[in-house]
Write a protein that binds this DNA or RNA. Structure first.
Lengths: 192, 192
DNA sequence: TGAGTAACCAAGCAAGCGCTAGTGTAAATG
DNA sequence: CATTTACACTAGCGCTTGCTTGGTTACTCA
């Protein structure tokens, strides 16, 4: 469950597991399927992971840590105007969502399959990420760019953006950045 | 898979199944668990449903048909102003989402477990429902209440509203209607 | 009264599940 | 050179899964 055990081999296995979890769902993915995809036998799998649960936790941890890193970096590098920060955050969110799509789909839709311990650990990571959002939205509210309750707005925004994994086609004409900009324009009273 | 087989007994069984599917997830819910919750033996289950898949389809069909009925009725009964219709639709959406919560959570998060035939049938129902939304949003766009691409806006809106099942507490201080109003206020440039 | 039917049950099959035990082997380490 | 470590293998245990079979009960209606 911990990030310390992050050998290159394990990272690669985690990536493959994420793909299968998205294709089949966690419960329908058997350890034998995972092993075959990895080019080893099912017994060998348990040398890298304690049990099947730990593979799920690894997938989600990987994705969430990535999202946190990218968002922090993007916020550090962008201007201080609330509007810019809002757009930056939306872009960063959709960027990770689609470059690291498998891991995030698993994080969003297989969350409930985590056991209590892993769930607690990963909730902290997710909360840290959401805190970034709340801060950005606070600034936007204060600047009168948007209006409403800070938590409600945060959750509506995250909902709308996360839901894009259900319908957005990355091979279509619109880039994730376009999508982010259109979304920000939608919730801002005065369009540019 | 069809609505014709809708005996009262089957309806009740479907309701119980929805609850279990939400608690445990479709894959982790065994036919034995379903049977016990229904007060029968696992073998008897297959008198009412062809197989486990059909139970899932029944749950989702029930929920979607309900949502369609309620939304149509609400739209028929409300005034013609785009702003009123938008608010009405948002309220209707959250109302069904939380009075028929189990069925809708299953519809939203276990969709992928449907086989091809059931999926095709139910997609039509869902499309019919989404068409109601697109029409309402078209009117709102034309009246300059909101701005953006009609399909993008529809999907962002549906995403934000559907995501509420992940965080909204119906026993909290805010009613679903309040929630709907706050959401509409958020996406409309000029607050009331 | 007797045929038809909806609802149920006990028993169990074949397949598949997560996981373990014990072993082999090549490379790194003392 | 001896030992440890990392990674993989084979074989299979004990259990659960969705579903079937063959039969019983209770009720309806001609």
């Amino acid at each position: 469950m911990n990030v310390i055990n992050a050998s290159p081999r394990r990272k690669e296995l985690t990536r493959l597991a994420a793909q299968l979890f998205v294709q089949e769902g966690f419960d329908r993915t058997t350890v034998r399927m995972l092993a075959q995809e990895m080019g080893i036998k099912s017994g060998s799998l348990f040398h890298h992971f304690k049990d099947k649960q730990e593979i799920l936790a690894a997938v989600i941890e990987e994705g969430t840590l990535n999202a946190l890193t990218i968002a922090r970096k993007a916020l550090n590098e962008c201007a201080a105007e609330p509007e810019v920060r809002l757009r930056t955050m939306a872009r960063a969110h959709l960027e990770t969502l689609f470059t690291d799509r498998n891991a995030h789909v698993v994080a969003l839709f297989e969350w409930r399959r985590l056991d209590a311990a892993a769930s607690a650990h990963l909730s902290h990571l997710r909360d840290a990420y959401e805190a970034l959002w709340v801060a950005v939205i606070d600034d936007a509210l204060e600047a009168n760019l948007i209006h409403g309750d800070r938590f409600l707005v945060s959750r509506f925004v995250l909902g709308a953006l996360n839901w894009t994994v259900r319908w957005y086609d990355p091979n279509g004409p619109r880039s994730p950045d376009d999508l982010a900009d259109e979304f920000v324009a939608m919730i801002m009273p005065s369009p540019a």
